[in-house]
Design a binder for these strands. Structure first.
Lengths: 572, 572
DNA sequence: GGCAACACGTGAATC
DNA sequence: TGATTCACGTGTTGC
């Protein structure tokens, strides 16, 4: 039941872009005014709309909606306001029947909703043309909840999104229908969601705001969707380990980067956070929901997940797939109504597509449906005639799926990914690995030297030390007047007992003094005296350092300093 | 000029697999016997042959041959012997003309070579049938060099491959023709290569042996091909940072994992080693060689390399592309001769393919060839009729190329990749990142605790000081002698015209000198004089800097320095 | 409308 | 021989 599928996608974009007009609308809905929703267009590196859609549509759970709450903290107090949203609707056929009967509040409420929608529609369409009978469809609870959300905002950490944004800790509320009196219900938004039939609501902090998504189903915590959030809403800030679980019924368990587990199952599990599922509760009122209670996570085996039961990994949101799923609900209906309302006639002509979509989503327990699942390609030539390629196509689909899954995982562990595309991700991953590695190397050498110092300090009580030797540097060796191609940095080191004298002659460019001192710092050598002088373009440094218990040899020292001073790397 | 293209590839495999017979052959070639070449078939996770071919064929430079020297150190002494090889030949048309005239040694040598080849051929074909006139083609120098290589082996680090294998450091010898008396010529293999017209020879250590490849062209060092070596010859051992440059004419420069640079140009440069090109020399006798001297590396810009001049990144060896290139030389010739000899008639019927291959390899300077380059797809439906998709196809090709390049780079920095496929690579990369991260975290906490211990031990000797400690060891601190705000750092700044005098008085702990100088560096203030002295536990720094055009005010400067010196952040 | 990025179906090659 | 991986050309979407 997909609203604004591709057919009216542009219309929806206009709808979203014009949301700043809403504050001026004479909407009679009892909601607070929108503070500054003009931010929707300012976040433009791929439309938010599309990312939300990707997030929701690709998931194997059936999420109902997704919202990006955008922070606009230009003024002192931060405020989260509607950034963008995507409404998918719940499962499909039961929504129309169930919800109006349940808690819709009767005719008056419906009339109210319709009136508001009419006004909104007229705002979008520019003129109030022919939208009257467009909204005589019933407005479901979740639709209404979603639409009303557009008008809401949260100041200074207020309510659930605000809290998540301030604390930087994600929240996953599931099964709240059974604990309406619980702690989470203190949030107005959660309470509201509950009354409108949302059973699961998740808020995750992202760059510049909070992503909230929810479902009328009971969905237990799983990391994949959080990976996806991080991937799609690339938040460089916040750190990669800020997510935390908060559940209404279970204890909070945060799990940060346990490498053993991640390494054990080879990157298929979420590397940044583990969501402990709540085993109890949830009388999943939607019996068709494919993941009963302790959803079958794929922590199955270590090396490769090539031999998965087919259909297990089909959860990557992509254009075609979204279209495919959306095609089940795309119905011939008047244009402006299609924007806000799902068409009532769900008996569409594209029956196969809906069937396929319905049976490809629930991870089919049988190994392969094989003969069914007609591909029903959209705009491709089927090359029909063989039966072999159908299987091949499926296999290839799964291979791509797996690859994308891996990309998600990689994205989740690499911070500061510059762009969203795969090539950049790979490049950034490489850079990140190198950064990590060099950091590790630096730390390791630090640790070694510290260890040596520690040892030295400990052993200083017992007077059995071997110092005294005075050796001369090996680098310069008299001639060595800046060999061709070399960097023109001369380093002389004289170790004299506990103290060591260092003389460095270099150019004056690139801050050699800072380099020398940083190098000494990183080797944990304390400076007792130093002088820097510049004559013409030559810089001459002289330093005396203390090195209790000769941690480094003469050669090590001079080589290290030489490298650090003449190196291209700029210490920071 | 592709020997053993796909058409006779199986024949070539048989040829290679039967190489253990060679020791028993009555070959009259003056070469040492092969010790144990039966290893060719033991390295089976993708044929070596194919990987060598991929390595060579995909590169943008025109390599002539590639050899895998396999180590068989089952017995105590290690020995490198012929593992597998791939011969591509040089450019093409000039080979036949130039080489026989140059140094072939005349008719006697030719007769000798032909006789050896005949024997080899007869060994392969099983019976000496009709191979007589097959080898009346001239045997070029490089072909001969390659073939003779099959019979060679290197004991215990002897010669260039042995040395590379023992030291684990790659070697890139280029332009050696001008320095025949140089150090590299002490290697017999290099000398031999030179005499047979090889101008560039590269040896890289890989898992279980050494990959050697060479060219009759002068090819300067570039990291891409090394990435590819690492990717194709997945060496889990050896570490990813073992490569080192050795050039006959320039000084050796090794460059290990400089993270700043890698981060700066965003993973497009080779992350593991930088090959300094030799700017001089190289009267590139092949004028058509596309990369003149300081080959245009892509260290061009920082963020993304989307807008490359098209055709820049075409260097990934792949089946189709290899086939395409090979098709240029596949000529109708007798079977057994085609195995060892290129057919003489280079005027092939597949003219378009050769043209396309010839003009797609040299990175075309013009933005896009546009109308030319007929796709000439092999088994695909062309959907001809439009002219738009041709460009699209090219763009897509380049996108894939870039992605693969990134995969190579990633592969190069991730050790222990379990399998060769992309999905495993990604998974392993994720695991590796997490491993690194956890290691780093552990080390960091170790460092903190060690630092605390160190501090404690140091303070035990002279219990008179808790003053001025800018200790960042927030962990053990206890009373945290360094109260926030009063860090015990005094900064005086006097701006006097262009020069500015700075005086800093602080504790001696935590390297305040380094902090000061780094702060100055980051504000881009050049030091003309500085002195650091320590009296008791007090450090007094004095510095004179130049500040043309008063960029900072007195207050800004002193505040910034105060913050940086007393801050907890340790500059790196 | 060009262009970049992506997923898809498909042919081929490998094990 | 079936499974799996890969690159290619193509359609599509969003800027």
């Amino acid at each position: 039941m997909n609203l604004w599928s591709d057919d009216n996608g542009s219309m929806m974009e206009a709808f979203m872009a014009s949301s700043d007009l809403w504050g001026a609308s004479s909407s009679s809905a009892a909601v607070q005014p929108v503070p500054s929703s003009a931010a929707a267009a300012s976040f433009n590196q791929e439309t938010l709309q599309h990312r939300l859609q990707t997030l929701i549509e690709g998931a194997r759970e059936s999420w109902t909606y997704a919202i990006f709450w955008q922070s606009s903290d230009d003024d002192g107090s931060s405020v989260l306001a509607w950034g963008d949203g995507y409404y998918k609707g719940s499962g499909g056929e039961e929504e129309k029947r169930k919800l109006p009967a349940a808690s819709n509040g009767g005719a008056a409420e419906q009339e109210h909703r319709k009136r508001v929608l009419r006004e909104l529609n007229s705002l979008i369409a520019g003129a109030p043309v022919a939208v009257d009978d467009a909204v005589d469809e019933e407005v479901t609870d979740t639709e209404w909840f979603f639409l009303v959300s557009m008008t809401q905002s949260f100041f200074n950490g207020a309510d659930l999104p605000g809290h998540v944004f301030i604390t930087g800790a994600a929240a996953w509320l599931a099964g709240a229908s059974r604990v309406t009196g619980g702690a989470a219900a203190s949030y107005e938004r959660v309470r509201q969601a509950l009354t409108f039939g949302i059973q699961t609501i998740v808020c995750a902090p992202v760059a510049g705001g909070v992503v909230e998504f929810g479902s009328t189903d009971l969905i237990y915590q799983n990391p994949n969707i959080m990976d996806k959030v991080r991937f799609l809403f690339n938040h460089g800030g916040g750190g990669a380990a800020t997510t935390t679980t908060t559940t209404t019924t279970t204890t909070t368990t945060s799990w940060m980067h346990d490498p053993s587990t991640v390494t054990a199952d080879h990157g298929d599990s979420d590397p940044s956070a583990l969501w402990i599922s709540e085993p109890a509760g949830g009388d999943g009122k939607d019996a068709a929901f494919p993941f009963p209670a302790p959803l079958p996570k794929e922590l199955r085996f270590s090396d490769e997940l090539c031999n998965l039961p087919s259909g297990e990994l089909l959860n990557f949101g992509d254009e075609k797939k979204t279209q495919r799923a959306a095609a089940a609900a795309a119905a011939p209906v008047s244009f402006s109504s299609a924007v806000l309302l799902p068409s009532g006639d769900s008996d569409d002509e594209d029956l196969e597509a809906s069937i396929r979509e319905a049976e490809s989503r629930p991870a089919a327990p049988q190994p392969l449906p094989e003969a069914e699942r007609r591909p029903k390609k959209r705009g491709r030539k089927p090359a029909n005639g063989r039966e072999e390629p159908l299987n091949h196509v499926e296999a290839e689909r799964q291979r791509r799926e797996k690859l994308n899954q891996r990309f998600y995982s990689l994205r989740a562990v690499v911070p500061n990914v510059s762009k969203m595309d795969k090539a950049s991700l790979l490049g950034d991953a490489v850079a990140y690995i190198n950064e990590l590695r060099s950091k590790l190397q630096a730390l390791e050498s630090d640790a070694i030297s510290m260890n040596a110092q520690l040892e030295a300090l400990r052993n200083r009580d017992s007077p059995a030390r071997s110092s005294a030797s005075v050796s001369f540097s090996s680098t310069g060796g008299g001639a060595a007047a800046a060999a061709p191609g070399c960097s023109g940095v001369e380093v002389d080191v004289k170790i004299m007992g506990k103290e060591t004298m260092i003389r460095v002659q270099s150019g004056r460019a690139n801050h050699p003094a800072a380099r020398l001192l940083v190098a000494l710092m990183e080797m944990d050598l304390e400076v007792v005296y130093a002088s820097v002088s510049v004559v013409n373009d030559l810089m001459i440094q002289q330093a005396t350092i203390t090195m209790p218990m000769r941690v480094y040899s003469n050669e090590q020292l001079s080589a290290a300093l030489q490298a650090r001073i003449s190196g291209t790397r700029r210490p920071r």
